[in-house]
């Protein structure tokens, strides 16, 4: 075996986690990513899913053409921290309010909702006022999405 003195001034090299299971408490952020509405443009949502995975999050992807009811059912069962909704069909002003209402009815208001899609600025403001945490627009850099999710989870606090 080659002795490369890797232990000098730095800690252990990043362990491949399959070799050393993390048995101490691990807070993994769980995000449900869904396409609601009828449009099938999943380019953005897939990039987001990959980005979050590569940032160490667990992404529950529920596929295309989901209804708000299905999304909320899944989010509650999966106990996710965040629901990320991508919608490009123009139905965002119908979909987001219903999602928030359903979460409320299900006693799951600690699940935060963020969204992405082609949404005009004034409607972005309306949606945020309704309780959508963040709206990500086209070309939001992947890093900022990760940072945003981490930030809102920290702001929410333990639950």
């Amino acid at each position: 075996m080659e002795n490369d003195g890797a232990l000098g001034d730095r800690a252990l090299p990043p362990a491949r986690k399959e070799n050393i299971p993390m048995t101490t408490e691990s807070k993994v952020i769980r995000v449900l990513v869904a396409k609601v509405g009828l449009d099938g443009h999943d380019r953005g949502v897939k990039i987001v899913a990959r980005t979050l995975r590569d940032a160490g999050m667990e992404v529950i992807y529920t596929g295309l053409h989901r209804t708000p009811e299905e999304v909320v059912d899944a989010a509650v069962q999966e106990d996710v921290d965040v629901i990320g909704i991508s919608i490009l069909s123009g139905a965002h002003m119908t979909v987001f309010p219903r999602l928030l209402k359903l979460l409320d009815e299900r006693g799951a208001k600690d699940i935060m909702v963020v969204g992405g899609g082609v949404i005009p600025d004034d409607e972005v403001i309306q949606l945020k006022n309704l309780g959508v945490k963040e709206i990500m627009l086209q070309d939001t850099p992947p890093d900022s999405i990760v940072a945003m999710i981490r930030r809102i989870v920290v702001e929410r606090g333990p639950r």
Partner: peptide, 20 residues
């Protein structure tokens, strides 16, 4: 989208998307 996906305009899946 409802037309593209084969839903009538009064189908529940069409809500919010008619003529959008």
């Amino acid at each position: 989208m409802p037309t593209l996906m084969g839903y009538d305009s009064d189908h529940p899946m069409s809500e919010g998307e008619v003529g959008r």
